[in-house]
Nucleic acid binder design. Sequence first.
DNA 1: CCGGATCCGAATCGATACTG
DNA 2: CAGTATCGATTCGGATCCGG
Lengths: 232, 232
Amino acid sequence: MAARSYGQYCGLTRAVELVGERWALLIIRDLLVGPRRYTDLKQGLPRIPTNILSTRLKELQEGGVVRRVPLARCGLVYELTPYGRALEPIMLALGRWGFQTMGDPAEGDVVTPDSLTMALRTAFRPERAEDADFELHVGDVALRARVRDRMLTVAQLAPPAPPVGGAPPSGDPEGVIVAGPGIRRLIGGEITADEAVAQDVAAVVRGDEEILARFAGMFRIDPIEPIEPIDP
Amino acid sequence: MAARSYGQYCGLTRAVELVGERWALLIIRDLLVGPRRYTDLKQGLPRIPTNILSTRLKELQEGGVVRRVPLARCGLVYELTPYGRALEPIMLALGRWGFQTMGDPAEGDVVTPDSLTMALRTAFRPERAEDADFELHVGDVALRARVRDRMLTVAQLAPPAPPVGGAPPSGDPEGVIVAGPGIRRLIGGEITADEAVAQDVAAVVRGDEEILARFAGMFRIDPIEPIEPIDP
DNA sequence: CCGGATCCGAATCGATACTG
DNA sequence: CAGTATCGATTCGGATCCGG
């Protein structure tokens, strides 16, 4: 039996053995945004020890979740295999689940470009989507998000994107939203767009302020019903 | 910042901090089957150190995922909160994902009643369901599974169920299936019911042998398409 | 700058023993 | 039954180092 095996013959156990080690799911989160170099991953996961990153990447390759690709344009990158990409809906659902109980950021917590990108994907509701094209700034991170035809695409503007990222669309966005961590409350439906502006949670620094309401309409994670139906 | 925090402000990170520690998801898997006493959990997770079980249960309670309920009939049990139960679709999806690459069992791997119950739920396809009522034996584990109205219910027959489990239906099942770990290949669609019988992967020891084909029709986890569309 | 490998103290895990 | 206590074996985290 493998060293860190749980000793059970079960699909979930297998999954946890593949991607349940510390840091593994966060590495996969970043790779869901796009292929990344070793250094990109290290920057996107500021607190990961380099030896752990190295070890996890090897394990994930061995498990068929990640592969290492020498890329002509920019050296060596890691990317998800099709099997690894099959985790995407699970990661989005897990992100939604965790979002429900996210409090305020702890001291030292950071928001990275890839985590914000995945947060947008997590919160995106295709069924409510309407075309839009805006910039979102949170801390040092700036993204360009575009919705066309109920499809969301996100590109990283700042910090300067890794060479592998998709290029942002040319032309100007409809508006620029600058937000703090409190934007969680807007996405969570705790406050309205107007309240977000009033409480300085978010501001529209360019374009029509109405874009914030459109944002809040499409990017939404509803709380689970707080029923407590169990009665011993 | 908390001791084992990842230092990121992100929904997925929060989720991983809540349920990503070693053994936590397997504890949750067992609790998805029903409330369990400390000892039930320890039996269902034969290789978990008791201090880890104790620690995880405390952490999961603190995270609002699990609660401890003094139950009149049988002492103290742990059960999922509504928030914890919200993990069910995610756990089923993760189980399906891991199932795809489950090889043969390693030496010493066990199949527990709760893991087999969740495996059945994982593989169940409501859209293909037809009424059925059968016993499934794998190793020492025996379950009674019943499908009515496209809903699956599973009860544990052996080993003797924890007092909290639902009672099995009265009356005889339509058939009794005895299988080995190779039943994975039947569920995975690698072999047909006839081949499973021919290869001694499964046998119908009571009732009409046709029930195995009906089983295979409703309980199925298809492989992900093995496309490799990336071309650097 | 990129892609790691190495080293070492601190924290966690795993196994066993023990207790109310 | 429901855990706590103890202790050696691993792993993790942080820092540094190194070849390209």
